[in-house]
Design a binder for these strands. Sequence first.
DNA 1: TCGGAAAGGATAGTATTCTAAGGACGTGAG
DNA 2: CTCACGTCCTTAGAATACTATCCTTTCCGA
Lengths: 165, 165
Amino acid sequence: MAQRFRHPAEYYTDPENSIGYLARVVFRSFSRLLERGTLTHDVSAGQWRFLRQLWRQDGITQRELSERVGMREPTTVVALKSLEAAGFIRREKTDTDKRKTYIYLTPHAKRLELVLAPMNAEIHEIATRGMTDAEVATLQAMLRRVVENLADETRTLSVLSDVQA
Amino acid sequence: MAQRFRHPAEYYTDPENSIGYLARVVFRSFSRLLERGTLTHDVSAGQWRFLRQLWRQDGITQRELSERVGMREPTTVVALKSLEAAGFIRREKTDTDKRKTYIYLTPHAKRLELVLAPMNAEIHEIATRGMTDAEVATLQAMLRRVVENLADETRTLSVLSDVQA
DNA sequence: TCGGAAAGGATAGTATTCTAAGGACGTGAG
DNA sequence: CTCACGTCCTTAGAATACTATCCTTTCCGA
């Protein structure tokens, strides 16, 4: 049980050393700056996240959309309600499987991609100011690595509690 | 107006390329894993963030605490209410400045540091599994850089809107 | 010294997200 | 064929965080 830690616990008392803290600040700053732009088109940051996925591909189910956006399904339900009320999407049911709901963008929402998608690129420019392309690529790769590591752990824990159940 | 972007807007349609998205996923995964541990001591992830700062130094004002935690003041007010109700902190007023409220940890909360602070180190171990110390240091440095870049931009925008107001 | 501005904190109202639980539909083993 | 289980979506209730606004107290310049 001689677990070697990279740093002692005291090291992380400074949030500036904590990846979790830094990720939170990055996420929130990103969100807020992005929303400054999108709100002029009556799109909130939360709605934008769903639109981004739907711009890539619409006509998918809510569950599929939830996974791609990285939100739980109740969150998606609420978000889609607001998107539907705002006239950005419509839902469609089929007879082949009456459980599923397919989400489609309205023409209005499709047109918005031209205006709103570049805003994310712009925030990226600001966020990575003064960094080389290689540095940015490294940052992305390492963040993906962290995401994967944490997802692995979450899966492991889920399996364990499944077994216990 | 020949603004050169690092990548075209299409590049960011894949969230895996978006630092904002990656930061959100990292933050949430971190939070959730941490909470798995802290909840056994009746501490939520939100409360933990305030406790971490108070472990470093208590007896500070609410405003000071808000800044260190990186939350707005109304959020701090609510969080402190729950921390007070749970018996983790007490508030104190002085006569020198009747506006200020100073926050102190209870002995119970101080003891919790020994148990709860290492949990963050543990999540870090998991999150950075398979990465070298140098890589982790690079990741932290780059995240700090992004935080700073975004904060600069936010400041600039605030000044602009102050001028307009 | 006194009146307006600033500082510290609280309240109200809203948005976002989660967990837990429930309901309708589909499927497959016996 | 049927019923138990799985899938897909929804509802209910709570936690977390925000913006906008207000109250009290303090400070400072004319």
